[in-house]
Computed example of a mutant assay.
Amino acid sequence: MPVYFYWGDDDYQISQAVKKLIDTHVDPMWRDFNYVKIHATVDLEVMDGLNQAVTSPFGMGNRLTWLADTAIAQRCSESLLAELERTFNHLPVDSYILFTASNKPDGRAKSTKLLQKYAQILEFSLIPPWKTDAIAQLVKQAATEIDLKLSSDAVDLLVDAIGNDTRRLTMELQKLQLSHYGQTKPLTAKEIAPLVQASAHNSLQLASAIRTSNISQALTLVAELLRNNEVGLRICATLVGQFRTWLWIKLMQESGERDDKAIADAAEIGNPKRVYFLKQEVQGLNSQKLMRSLSILLRLEAELKHGKDETATLQTAIIELCQAMAK
């Protein structure tokens, strides 16, 4: 299929997928002539990319036209829609076109239906940090791809240390592969701990500090996260996810539910065995506290989206959350 549409917020995985497309379709000797990247944020730039895509490649290999940061799957004028269909129907057999976007395609849009007809659509979204089961599966898959054997406790250590950072995961696994080249036994947590920086603070640690009303630790953690270039909205999203999970656990407990599988289904937890540990975390809390905390987090999200100072806004919300959990 000569048309590709990649979307999601995992910039690293998208960049790796784009590199693979370039290596597959474009002759390196003719790359300067047959590969172009256009930041197609407006219709005129999209049209420019479409015009280049219908041009046959020069010399050897194929042509690849990359239209980055496009919004065609969210909004698309009738004239551009017609041009897209015309281009898709007249692409040379040796010309490929790639669209990338951060947002999920709008299934109601005509342009999305057109892309579904002509394009290979792939999602590259970061796994939410609180979905540790899914991150563990990603670690196992990435390790298998480079023939690196890891024990279950080594996988757990990597999940805690790296979170959902796919770029760092790749770097850490490559480092472990080089340092333990030729080892046939699965690497254990004890073996990899000296090589993997496990001091990286994450938003789940921040959630735990808030849960225990530890204002000093919570403020230290949020400062560390911001120093490590973590985005305020992403910190907020992780906290919302964690508090939502805790709220579901508490609501199910208060309703009298005792079946961990039923609780896991309601809270959208992949591994029912994790419910036991979550129950321990919400001991001493009640659903009212957790609901108040979620309302604070939703207000925080709105303030961040309206451009308020990230550091001050986060610090104020963190203090308010800790006080709400202490009451």
Rank of each mutant, 00 (worst) to 15 (best):
A68E: 12
L50M: 09
T65D: 05
T55V: 02
Q52K: 11
Q52N: 08
G49M: 14
N51D: 05
V46N: 05
V42T: 11
A71C: 01
M60T: 10
I72A: 09
D43K: 09
L44D: 15
R63P: 02
T55N: 05
A73N: 02
I72T: 06
P57D: 03
L67E: 07
G61W: 05
E78W: 00
A53C: 07
E78G: 07
S77V: 11
A71T: 12
A68F: 02
W66F: 15
M60C: 07
M47S: 14
L67D: 10
M47L: 15
V46S: 10
M47R: 14
L50Q: 09
N51S: 03
N51A: 12
L67W: 09
Q74C: 00
N62L: 02
V54A: 02
Q74Y: 00
S77E: 03
V46R: 07
S77G: 08
L64I: 12
S56P: 00
N51H: 01
Q52I: 04
R75C: 01
S77W: 06
S77R: 06
L64N: 07
T55I: 08
E45R: 12
V54P: 00
A71I: 04
D43M: 09
A73K: 01
N51C: 01
G61E: 04
G49H: 10
C76N: 07
M60F: 04
N51F: 01
Q74A: 02
D48I: 01
S56Y: 07
D43P: 11
A73Q: 03
G61N: 08
D69G: 11
M47E: 15
T65R: 10
Q52S: 10
D43F: 03
Q74M: 02
R75G: 05
G49R: 06
M47H: 09
T70E: 08
V54N: 01
R75I: 05
D48H: 13
G59Y: 12
M47N: 05
F58V: 12
Q74E: 04
D43W: 01
F58D: 08
V46E: 06
C76Y: 05
F58E: 11
S77D: 04
P57K: 01
V54T: 14
W66V: 09
G49Y: 09
A53V: 01
G49P: 10
